[in-house]
């Protein structure tokens, strides 16, 4: 019961603090694609894979008092920081979900910037396409982000590293 909430809390606990809703979305999407059993469904939106279920679940956790959301103004927009509250930690201690090696992957992802994670998640979204088609998708759909070929290569390498990390463990 409330397992999906617990999984999400575990992801945030494992990451310590996640700064930015976009980053949170991309981290969970990438973790799900790599192997972890998150249930939230993602669709492609203007800015890449996005899950309305995930947004709602985060709102629920904030309303429950299990997640702390700090809103801060940054330039022309707001940015949100997420951490687990003490009540959240207590709930999680009683409802822990077995997800081995999640912490390792999420800590790694949390160290990357949102722009790079956006690229990684976009590449993963099109993993059913040939590599040259994926590159074309990145260049056309993410025109405004001006990703370079080098960054795309790094994204592929990063996906491989994450997958190896999960397999090795």
């Amino acid at each position: 019961m409330l397992k999906d909430h617990a999984k999400l809390m575990q992801a945030i606990a494992a990451s310590g603090e996640i700064i930015g809703r976009k980053k949170l979305q991309k981290m969970i999407y990438i973790a799900k694609k790599v192997t972890f059993p998150f249930q939230e469904r993602f669709q492609f939106h203007f800015y890449g894979p996005y899950s309305e279920e995930l947004t709602l679940r985060v709102e629920e956790l904030c309303n429950m008092g299990f997640l702390d959301e700090v809103k801060e103004k940054k330039g022309g927009y707001y940015q949100y920081r997420y951490t687990l509250t003490d009540n959240g930690k207590e709930f999680l201690s009683l409802n822990e979900v077995e997800m081995p090696y999640l912490e390792d992957c999420l800590t790694d992802m949390n160290g990357q910037n949102a722009r790079f994670l956006e690229l990684v998640s976009t590449v993963l979204y099109f993993d059913n396409l040939e590599k040259d088609e994926v590159i074309e998708k990145v260049f056309t759909l993410k025109k405004k982000q001006n990703y370079t070929m080098d960054e795309i290569i790094q994204a592929y390498q990063y996906i491989e590293e994450l997958q190896t990390k999960v397999k090795q463990n």
Binding site: G20, R21, K22, Q25, H45, F46, Y47, Y50, E52, E53, T55, L56, Y77, Y78, Q79, Y80, A114
Partner: peptide, 14 residues
């Protein structure tokens, strides 16, 4: 998740 209107933060959704 029938979605509500969201003003869009950090370029999440348009």
């Amino acid at each position: 998740p029938y979605d509500f209107y969201r003003p869009g933060e950090e370029e999440e959704r348009l």
